[in-house]
C-alpha cells in the first residue's frame, strides 16, 4: 500500500474506498476519538496529523472501539 505516513495510508484507502477516510478522521483530518491505528503493533503517536511513518512491510491495523448501550 502506498503512503509513507499513516495519513498517506488513509488517503490511499480513501481512493480505493471513496468516503472511508471520513469514517476514520474528522473534518480536520485528525483521528476520530474512538478510533485507534497501530503501526507495526504500536499505537500512533500523532493523532492530529497522522505523521507517524509506516514502513513498507509494516502492518497498519485500524481498531474501532465499540461501546455504549
Amino acid at each position: 500500500m502506498e503512503g509513507e505516513t499513516v495519513a498517506g495510508v488513509v488517503r490511499t484507502l480513501d481512493r480505493r474506498y471513496p468516503g472511508l477516510a471520513a469514517y476514520l478522521v474528522d473534518d480536520r483530518g485528525a483521528l476520530r476519538k474512538h478510533v485507534n491505528i497501530f503501526v507495526g503493533g504500536e499505537l500512533v503517536v500523532d493523532r492530529e496529523r497522522l505523521t507517524d511513518p509506516t514502513g513498507s512491510e509494516e502492518e497498519v491495523f485500524i481498531l474501532q472501539a465499540l461501546s455504549g448501550g
Binding site: 471520513a22 469514517y23 476514520l24 474528522d26 476520530r32 476519538k33 474512538h34 478510533v35 474501532q64 472501539a65 465499540l66 461501546s67 455504549g68
Partner: peptide
C-alpha cells in the same frame, strides 16, 4: 450520528 465514525 455514529458514535465513532462521526456524522453522516
Amino acid at each position: 450520528d455514529h458514535g465513532h465514525w462521526g456524522q453522516k
